Lab assay of single mutants.
Amino acid sequence: MALNTPQITPTKKITVRAIGEELPRGDYQRCPQCDMLFSLPEINSHQSAYCPRCQAKIRDGRDWSLTRLAAMAFTMLLLMPFAWGEPLLHIWLLGIRIDANVMQGIWQMTKQGDAITGSMVFFCVIGAPLILVTSIAYLWFGNRLGMNLRPVLLMLERLKEWVMLDIYLVGIGVASIKVQDYAHIQAGVGLFSFVALVILTTVTLSHLNVEELWERFYPQRPATRRDEKLRVCLGCHFTGYPDQRGRCPRCHIPLRLRRRHSLQKCWAALLASIVLLLPANLLPISIIYLNGGRQEDTILSGIMSLASSNIAVAGIVFIASILVPFTKVIVMFTLLLSIHFKCQQGLRTRILLLRMVTWIGRWSMLDLFVISLTMSLINRDQILAFTMGPAAFYFGAAVILTILAVEWLDSRLLWDAHESGNARFDD
């Protein structure tokens, strides 16, 4: 018995066209964080690309023209004298008006014999932002004059995390709450300039795509075929072959399989920071003279006294001054041990922890910024005066060393310790 099946006739004509040209192939790229070699397709503007294995951002879609970056830099340069030299806060102490600005706080630190601690604050609040705007201006002028731009481009990517104007702005709020127990506070004209400078700096850093600047100024022929001998440069993120001198053909720094002496430098910085954190938390970090009496505060006791007036601000200072430094030390110690013992479990967790400490590390400088600003506000000789204690130097040095330890660690070593050939990683 035959089955009668109805015929289905399409209502619209289906047209099949042959592909007349070869589909576009992607360029081969190595991930600078996990060293995976993959094919990167062509990316349009405002599109980002991520590593298929570790999800690290390979290409950032946010990109401004150099002219727009230069305009932002010149605007920031105009704001800087007002943000640093004009009063941020006014207080009335014992019937006398006192003005506080950024430069005055750094000068008070240096004047009291601790120039190293003052230079830490100076670099993060004044030096690094000033280098940022002058570097962008150098790129703008240098591109037109045919100057060598490689050193500036190499420095810009590392400079971003040292620009800490946003953290200093939080420190202004913390210092205001600490001082309000002794005097009446009012915002100064410099505060508005400083807030504007923070906003412009944040926007500029978020749109400063150094890798795209490398592509514009020093374009290189990408690798179009897969080759395990391809290496990625950690300076400019170019994937290719080393030249005859073993250097990256684009930025001219040595092109090595792994960062040289990464573990040794990381261990040295980490152990030194552990040693410095002990006096930083045991010795007094601030000293207040009130009517001839002397009151010393460690980091913890200062947080407890701050909690009596504002528990939320005390929580912020606790996280930045105690929780973050010790968390960074514990995480980095764990990561280094996992590399030495070739741990194969929990790779995803370790990668996330490394990215976390990379982002939060700079916030530990908050305590030094609060001390710097408070020193310029309260300084009335023996009637009422505020000065920093010996722990300030140890704390600042420990924070900087932990930042350097994270920067010096080559994250690809975590993958080397893991089993080879993993296309995915999980716990």
Rank of each mutant, 00 (worst) to 15 (best):
L3S: 09
N4A: 05
T5E: 08
Q7E: 10
Q7G: 09
I8D: 11
I8R: 10
T9H: 06
T9Y: 10
T11F: 06
K13W: 04
T15L: 07
V16T: 09
V16M: 08
V16P: 05
A18D: 07
E21N: 07
L23V: 08
L23H: 08
L23I: 08
L23M: 07
P24G: 06
P24D: 07
R25T: 08
R25I: 07
D27Q: 09
D27P: 14
D27E: 09
Y28W: 09
R30F: 03
R30D: 02
C31W: 00
P32H: 07
Q33D: 08
C34S: 00
C34G: 00
D35Y: 05
L37Y: 07
F38E: 04
F38I: 06
I43F: 06
N44Q: 07
S45F: 08
H46A: 07
Q47W: 05
Q47V: 05
S48N: 15
A49G: 05
C51S: 01
C51R: 03
P52E: 05
R53N: 10
Q55S: 08
I58S: 13
R59M: 04
R59I: 04
D60I: 06
G61P: 08
D63V: 12
W64F: 13
S65Y: 03
T67H: 07
R68Q: 04
A70V: 12
A71G: 05
M72L: 06
A73I: 06
A73H: 12
F74M: 08
L77M: 08
L78R: 00
L79R: 00
M80H: 15
F82Q: 03
F82V: 04
W84D: 06
E86G: 03
P87R: 06
P87W: 05
L88M: 04
L88R: 00
I91T: 05
W92L: 02
L94A: 01
D99L: 04
A100S: 09
N101Q: 01
N101A: 03
Q104H: 11
Q104G: 05
G105W: 01
I106T: 04
Q108A: 14
Q112G: 09
G113P: 08
T117Y: 02
T117G: 04
G118V: 02
M120W: 03
F122M: 12
F123W: 08
I126P: 13
I126A: 15
I126R: 15
A128E: 01
P129L: 06
I131Q: 02
I131V: 11
L132V: 06
V133E: 02
S135D: 05
S135G: 05
I136H: 07
I136P: 01
I136Y: 06
A137L: 08
A137R: 00
F141V: 15
G142D: 01
G142Y: 02
N143H: 15
N143F: 15
N143M: 14
R144Y: 14
R144P: 01
L145C: 08
G146F: 03
G146T: 04
M147I: 04
L149K: 15
P151G: 03
V152S: 06
V152C: 10
L153H: 04
L153N: 07
R158A: 11
K160Q: 10
E161F: 02
W162V: 02
V163W: 02
V163C: 10
M164C: 06
L165F: 05
D166C: 15
Y168C: 09
V170D: 02
I172T: 07
V174N: 05
S176K: 02
V179F: 01
D181W: 01
Y182S: 11
H184F: 13
G188N: 05
V189Y: 05
G190H: 02
F192A: 08
F192C: 06
S193D: 03
V195N: 11
V195E: 03
L200F: 15
L200T: 13
L200Y: 15
L200Q: 15
T201G: 07
T202D: 15
V203S: 14
T204P: 05
S206W: 15
H207S: 15
V210S: 15
E211F: 13
E212S: 15
E212F: 15
E212W: 13
W214P: 01
E215G: 14
R216T: 14
Y218W: 11
P219M: 10
R221L: 14
P222Y: 13
T224C: 14
R225T: 10
R225L: 13
R225P: 14
D227S: 15
D227N: 14
K229A: 14
R231F: 09
L234C: 13
G235A: 09
C236N: 00
F238M: 10
G240K: 11
P242Q: 11
R245D: 11
G246Q: 07
R247L: 11
R247D: 15
C248L: 00
C248F: 00
P249S: 11
P249D: 11
H252I: 05
I253S: 10
P254I: 08
L255A: 12
L255Y: 14
R256K: 09
R256G: 12
L257R: 06
L257M: 13
R258V: 07
R258I: 10
R259A: 13
R259W: 15
H261L: 10
S262T: 14
Q264M: 03
K265V: 02
W267H: 14
L271I: 14
S273M: 03
S273C: 13
I274W: 14
V275D: 07
V275P: 02
L277F: 00
L277E: 09
P279A: 15
P279M: 15
A280T: 11
N281S: 11
L282Y: 11
L283W: 03
L283R: 10
P284W: 08
P284L: 03
S286H: 00
I287K: 15
I288T: 01
I288W: 00
Y289V: 05
L290M: 09
L290A: 02
L290V: 09
N291P: 11
G292C: 03
G293K: 10
R294L: 04
Q295Y: 15
Q295N: 14
D297C: 06
D297P: 08
T298G: 06
T298E: 15
T298S: 11
L300A: 05
S301L: 03
S301I: 04
S301N: 07
G302T: 01
G302N: 00
M304A: 08
S305E: 12
L306A: 00
L306G: 00
S308W: 12
S309N: 11
I311A: 14
A312R: 15
V313C: 09
V313T: 12
A314T: 12
A314W: 05
A314I: 14
G315C: 15
I316A: 15
V317K: 00
V317N: 00
S321Y: 15
S321A: 05
L323P: 01
P325Y: 00
P325M: 01
T327E: 03
T327L: 13
V331L: 10
M332F: 13
M332K: 08
T334A: 10
L335A: 09
L336V: 12
L336H: 06
L337S: 10
S338L: 15
S338R: 11
H340P: 09
Q344T: 12
Q345C: 12
G346P: 14
L347K: 11
R348Y: 12
T349W: 12
T349L: 14
R350M: 09
R350Y: 11
I351R: 14
L352E: 09
L352D: 09
L352M: 12
M356N: 10
V357I: 10
T358H: 11
W359K: 13
W359G: 05
I360F: 08
I360H: 03
G361F: 05
G361M: 00
W363I: 01
W363P: 02
V370R: 00
V370C: 05
I371Q: 00
S372T: 07
L373F: 02
M375G: 08
M375V: 10
S376H: 03
L377M: 06
L377A: 02
N379P: 01
R380N: 01
D381G: 11
A385N: 07
A385D: 04
F386Q: 00
F386V: 01
T387W: 07
T387L: 12
M388P: 06
A391N: 02
A392Q: 03
A392V: 03
F393S: 08
Y394K: 01
G396E: 03
A398R: 02
A398S: 10
V399S: 12
I400L: 05
T402I: 03
W408A: 04
D410P: 02
D410K: 00
S411I: 07
W415E: 06
D416H: 10
H418D: 11
H418S: 14
R424T: 05
F425M: 10
D426L: 04
D426M: 08
